[in-house]
């Protein structure tokens, strides 16, 4: 049987379909927040829940200063910690808690805990191509935790590795 023009055309179209390239860039979900005067983000995969800052946090004696306390999350105990000391930030804790603060529930293989942040800015899907490698000039104390930098609404955001943050905290830093 000879090939008709229609067959030929359909074959060409089928070939074209196979050549279609997915132009969607890979994206990464990020939770962007402010701590003190600086802006950071965690990978969304590590943040399981965002809770209002007014949630009751109960002071727990006998803990390092970075432990704000514990909270009751659906009957379970969840700690709430601050990263200011670990990241060497200066924050007016009382003021930030009273205003826009939020508690992010973070989870990694090492541990899980609430994290008090001063303001949740956004949760976004960012193309991976917009993530830039951290510069050499990055402060030494941040280098273990920073995976990349990016711009968001004209703000320079530092993407933190929550696993590295929690591992350092467990090791007694902050």
């Amino acid at each position: 049987m000879t090939t008709s023009q229609l067959d030929q055309l359909l074959n060409e179209r089928a070939g074209n379909d196979q050549e279609i390239v997915d132009v969607d860039e890979p994206v990464v979900k990020l939770v962007i927040f402010r701590l003190g005067e600086q802006h950071f983000a965690f990978a969304g995969a590590n943040i399981t829940e965002v809770l209002p800052g007014e949630e009751a946090v109960h002071y727990l004696p006998g803990m390092p200063a970075s432990v704000e306390g514990v909270m009751n999350v659906r009957g379970d105990i969840e700690s709430v910690i601050r990263l200011d000391d670990l990241l060497q930030l200066t924050t007016n804790t009382n003021q930030s808690k009273a205003e826009n603060s939020t508690i992010l529930l973070g989870r990694t293989k090492a541990m899980h805990s609430g994290l008090r942040v001063d303001q949740l800015l956004d949760v976004v899907d960012l193309p991976e191509s917009q993530l830039k490698a951290p510069p050499e000039a990055l402060p030494e104390h941040l280098k273990p935790y920073v995976t990349s930098l990016f711009n968001f609404n004209n703000l320079a955001i530092t993407l933190l590795d929550l696993d590295a943050v929690f591992t350092a905290w467990l090791a007694g830093q902050g």
């Binding site: 004696p61 006998g62 803990m63 390092p64 432990v67 700690s79 899980h112 805990s113 905290w169 467990l170």
Partner: peptide, 11 residues
């Protein structure tokens, strides 16, 4: 206590 709090407790 969650394990990380047991590990970091000062009391």
């Amino acid at each position: 206590l969650p394990p990380h709090l047991l590990a970091r407790r000062t009391f």
